[in-house]
């Protein structure tokens, strides 16, 4: 028996919004420690790694490890049937071929359940090596989303160059070029609005706008985003899922020829 409950379905809605652009289907691996999802997009350019810890749920029970393959578009359809403040309970029997989403209104005057067919996805599990990154940037997630959106107007790629002075985002194309420089903030009172840079060595890499903009769909989850970069390894873009865990996106850089 698997059962996981969240007091408000909006968190699950936000998590789904954050991954549905990149993945059509995904396997949710459920164990007593929580729910894990790890999948590359079809073109093997990006990888999504989602961790939702069991102790972050309002109720969590997982008697036996189960992997639930779900179509994300179908999941989105079902979650649309829930109000943001409805309690959501995800339930599945061991060896089940369906998963049930139960929504309960706060007043307990409406209870609905939706059963969704599970899929056999046979996804590979990948080992992600620990990396000491040359640069780790923390900045407001809204600012990062704004920069990705603005620079996408200029070209298909965004250059991210990090030095101890700050981070420079740049793009160029037919209409011209754009540069946005973000400096480390000295005011640490408002942590959510701060920009911090931990730099061992300067790094400059180029990434596809389309993927960065997909990652920013996670913005509603967290006020801050963390960008980790080193030469010759994927960029890691991490958002915290408050109280539950995190979502990490890995993106292969563009290669100069």
């Amino acid at each position: 028996m698997f059962e996981a409950r969240l007091d408000s379905s909006v968190t699950l809605k936000k998590v789904l919004e954050a991954i549905k652009d990149l993945l059509n289907d995904a396997s949710f691996d459920c164990s007593d420690t929580g729910i894990q999802l790890q999948a590359m997009d079809n073109s093997h350019v990006s990888l999504v790694s989602l961790t939702l810890k069991s102790d972050g749920f309002d109720k969590y029970r997982c008697d036996r490890n189960i992997t639930m393959g779900m179509n994300l578009a179908s999941m989105v359809k079902i979650l649309k049937c829930a109000n943001n403040d409805d309690t959501v309970t995800i339930k599945a029997q061991d060896d089940a071929d369906t998963v049930t989403f139960m929504f309960e209104s706060k007043k307990q005057d409406k209870i609905s359940d939706y059963a969704m067919k599970l899929m056999n996805l046979d996804q590979e599990h990948l080992g992600i090596p620990d990396t000491d990154f040359s640069c780790v940037i923390r900045m407001p997630s809204i600012e990062f989303a704004r920069i990705c959106r603005d620079l996408a107007q200029f070209g298909e790629s965004i250059g991210i160059a990090c030095t101890k002075e700050g981070v420079k985002f740049s793009a160029s194309g037919d209409i011209g070029s754009a540069n946005v420089k973000i400096a480390q903030t000295s005011n640490f009172e408002k942590e959510e609005e701060s920009v911090t840079i931990e730099m061992q060595e300067p790094v400059a890499l180029t990434f596809a706008c389309q993927y960065l903009n997909s990652f920013t769909k996670a913005t509603p989850l967290s006020p801050q985003v963390q960008l980790s970069m080193s030469d010759n390894v994927p960029l890691v873009v991490e958002y915290t899922v408050p109280e539950l865990g995190h979502i990490r996106y890995y993106l292969a850089p563009k290669i100069e020829e």
Partner: peptide
Amino acid sequence: VTTQGRLDGFFTVL
């Protein structure tokens, strides 16, 4: 000219 890199090779298949 830049080409899009792939993730294959960065991760190990468990």
